[in-house]
């Protein structure tokens, strides 16, 4: 049994405590936007936010979490694709197959929170997600565009 704080809601889940957060999200809660790819924390397809940090949900046993950890998944980023990254991704047609894109967007969202105007080297350091289709250059453009959308929103 775990009590989790996911996308602003507290949810009780009947599950073995050793189960990784990724699989609780996907199987117990039906939040399948967070993807399984490597299962070892390398590829970033399962990236979610925990208390504002980008973390790889495949490596976190659910027993280590309680309601003090605010978890946000791709489904909780916005209700209507209105997050600046979602707008930018749409504008630039960033995704190809799309499988890694939830993780890309969630990683980029934390970067933008921490560095509203990230440099290319900030992006290089923060985005370590694997994409086999090869969307990297549009991901980079998308992050810069989202930063601009954010700026416009603030001014």
């Amino acid at each position: 049994m775990a009590r989790l704080n996911i996308n602003g809601k507290v949810i009780d889940v009947e599950v073995d405590g050793s189960t990784p957060l990724l699989w609780v999200l996907r199987e117990q809660l039906g939040l399948t936007g967070t993807k399984y790819s490597c299962g070892t924390g390398i590829c970033g397809a399962c990236t979610v936010h925990i208390n504002g940090e980008a973390v790889r949900a495949c490596t976190i046993p659910v027993s280590t979490l309680d309601t003090a950890q605010a978890i946000v998944t791709i489904e909780g980023l916005s209700t209507d694709n209105s997050h600046p990254l979602q707008q930018a991704w749409k504008e630039l047609d960033v995704p190809q197959c799309g499988y890694c894109q939830s993780g890309m967007i969630m990683t980029a969202a934390v970067l933008l929170k921490k560095k509203p105007n990230p440099s290319d080297s900030d992006i290089d350091n923060a985005v370590t997600n694997i994409c086999r289709c090869g969307t990297f250059n549009r991901v980079r453009k998308g992050i810069h565009l989202a930063a601009n959308i954010n700026k416009r929103g603030r001014s």
Binding site: R26, T32, I74, N81, K90, D93, G98, Y99
Partner: peptide, 21 residues
């Protein structure tokens, strides 16, 4: 022209084989 299949890839709604229930 913009792709027809982008929206659901931005919010986790796109169902891949692994996501079917």
């Amino acid at each position: 022209i913009k792709r027809l299949d982008t929206d659901d890839k931005l919010n986790g709604k796109q169902i891949f084989g692994t996501d079917l229930k």
